[in-house]
Design a protein around this nucleic acid. Structure first.
Lengths: 189, 189
DNA sequence: GTCTATAACACGATAGAC
DNA sequence: GTCTATCGTGTTATAGAC
């Protein structure tokens, strides 16, 4: 495990603050205070506040893209692919809870990288929808509105960052299995 | 239908802007420009930026509280109550899409009313959870983790504000039924 | 790597004219 | 009800000493 650089410390501290108040409401002074230094000293390690946001979001967005490309290439049932998608979200969120808050809530404050982020997100959602549509066409999944299914699953998966920290005791695999069951098999007897 | 006052216009315009960029990133000058007036003129109708946020959020939060108290008092099955909760979210969100964004994303920027908002939210979630737990104890609902079920349903329902505007053609009742089916009966055959 | 000092500008809000 | 002008403060970021 490579040791955390000063820059990494700043980015991780920023992600924590962004989670609580959002990118726009966190000042460089807030961040400096949380680091125990003065605001001007931050600029010895990072170029701008915007750069911090970019590093937080783009890293995670690319992790989702990479994970999805492995899933769609795998030769399993579409239901299995959906379960892998659930596990992908659980794993990424568990390893970077604070960053997920910025990805979900502050992506619109990206400047130079906004178009790139939106491109990755659109591709991700298209792949997700395709899995559901193929599942319906092979009769693995009920003949329902595919977009409603994706919306529902994705809403839950995107909210995981709020929930995982409260359940520290819960194992990531257990949570992924539990969630898969609720999302795929429903809740009624 | 009572005609919209100038104050209402300001609040509705603010809600639209808050939805896109968040409370902190929207300036009073942004809001004034969107209204076609100067920033100073806003203060003839509202007391502060904070007051606008309060009016947006508290109204909606109280609507949820009122809706929930009717649902828990009704003498129907717990599954029926859950379907009523889904319909409550669809209806409130459909009638105030922009305000729902502030409720979800900017509640932490409430000042004087923060404690009151959190009290309403906690009570709401406790009632929601109780319906699920009673449904499990009466064997209407599978023996699963009740909190996982609530988390999943609530995540989807809270994200409706992002989705309803894209589906203008969809009837609110149809959406509520469709969502209830996906959330309660699951997606697999 | 951190500091003090400060530039350059944006912010919420008010005063008072019309 | 809207305007112009402005106050006091907070903002990101830079310069240069240590």
């Amino acid at each position: 495990m490579k040791s955390e650089t000063r820059k990494d410390e700043i980015i991780n501290t920023a992600a924590k603050l962004f989670k609580d108040k959002g990118y726009s409401a966190v000042t460089m002074r807030d961040l400096a205070t949380a680091m125990g230094i003065k605001a001007a000293s931050l600029y010895n390690h990072i170029n701008s506040k915007q750069d911090i946001l970019k590093e937080i979001i783009i890293d995670i967005a690319e992790a989702f893209t990479n994970g999805m490309s492995i899933i769609i290439a795998s030769e399993v049932s579409n239901i299995s692919k959906l379960k892998q998608v659930v596990a992908l979200h659980v794993n990424i969120t568990a390893s970077n809870t604070n960053g997920m808050a910025s990805l979900n809530n502050d992506w619109m404050h990206l400047e130079d990288q906004l178009d790139y982020y939106l491109k990755l997100r659109n591709e991700y959602e298209n792949n997700f929808l395709k899995i559901i549509e193929e599942g319906i066409s092979t009769a693995e999944i009920k003949q329902t509105n595919a977009e409603v299914i994706m919306f529902s699953m994705l809403s839950t998966l995107r909210s995981l960052y709020l929930w995982i920290p409260k359940k520290e005791d819960l194992n990531a695999d257990d949570l992924a299995n539990n969630l898969s069951e609720v999302l795929i098999e429903g809740i009624n007897v």
